[in-house]
Amino acid sequence: MKCAVCGRKAAVEVRRQGRAFCPEHYLEWFEHQVARAIRRHRMLEKDDRVLVAVSGGKDSIALWEVLRRLGYDTTGLHIQLGIDDYSKRALEATRRFAEERGLPLIVVDLKEAYRLSIPELAELTRRRACSVCGLTKRYVMNRVAVEEGFDAVATGHNLDDEASVLLGNVLHWQTDALVRQGPVLPAKEKLAKRVKPLYLLTEREILAYTLLRRLPYQHEECPFAVGAKSLLYKEALNKLETAMPGTKQTFLEQYLKKIEPVLQKGLSAEEVALKECERCGYPTTGEVCAFCKTWDHAYRWAKRKGQIPGELRFEAEPRLTFIPEGKRGGDARPAPAQEPAG
């Protein structure tokens, strides 16, 4: 198999496009795909300050590298989940990547900020770790982006993530979730713009990129991922993809193009207005947002069990650590004035 550009021996095949590339031209192709997705959906403007959500896994590390190479002003946000050694090694990989490139990084340690780790939060609320984890990450990401004045949050969601979520939502006809599947979620009052520049690249293509660029990333999987339904959906889609290359892309793209607009129109009558959460002031459809509700619930049990002092009230404001110290990231513009933490 030969490179579609130069004819040398190919290293990576992109079956859905019927092409293969040598290492050099693969990297070029990959970065071009990301740049094109950003342009096509107007995800980012050239001088935007971008907060990149970095878990330390291959997707977010690849995303940060590509955005950096494309010349964006990026700052990483890493959330320490407190899942034992897995979380520690995730931070190590993230820090190494940032330090090697001199990129600013913000770390939010949940245990430090809110007194509880994700496993504790899950146990106290009797919910699945991934459910409270996803909710917490989304909240912290948004809040940091809004309060630190970033123009957008970029996440490493890839084609497999998006297609498998779509499959899950379709299998259960989750119409409310279905209309929130696009690669760009526009900014609203106190809601930062969210973009997914890798949404049309497969996990396999992203892994090839991180390996060829020799990026440090965390190979190991979160212990809570085991048995996740998303893995089952991904496996099913990969079987289809192997037999019919292009299936995942068609499934997602055609949905976004043909079905989502219709759904959105049909459901718009039901769209509920956003209010400010009584506890934290961030947008919610109810009185108290899901984040505050979940953590308040956990605090009640943690107090009953004597894990935290009885007089302690849950405060949703995250505590940020800037690496390198004192650097707020994004040199392009002065950092926004900051109220003292607390």
């Binding site: 290293a11 095949e13 290492p23 991934c130 996803g134 090839a208 390996l211 991904k234």
Partner: peptide, 25 residues
């Protein structure tokens, strides 16, 4: 990195690396 059509020899050592990651993200 190898493509599916590449031939590998009896004395080669290969690595098969999973690209799939799970969990709600």
């Amino acid at each position: 990195l190898l493509t599916l059509d590449d031939e590998v020899a009896d004395d080669d050592t290969l690595e098969v690396i999973s690209a799939v990651s799970g969990g709600a993200r």
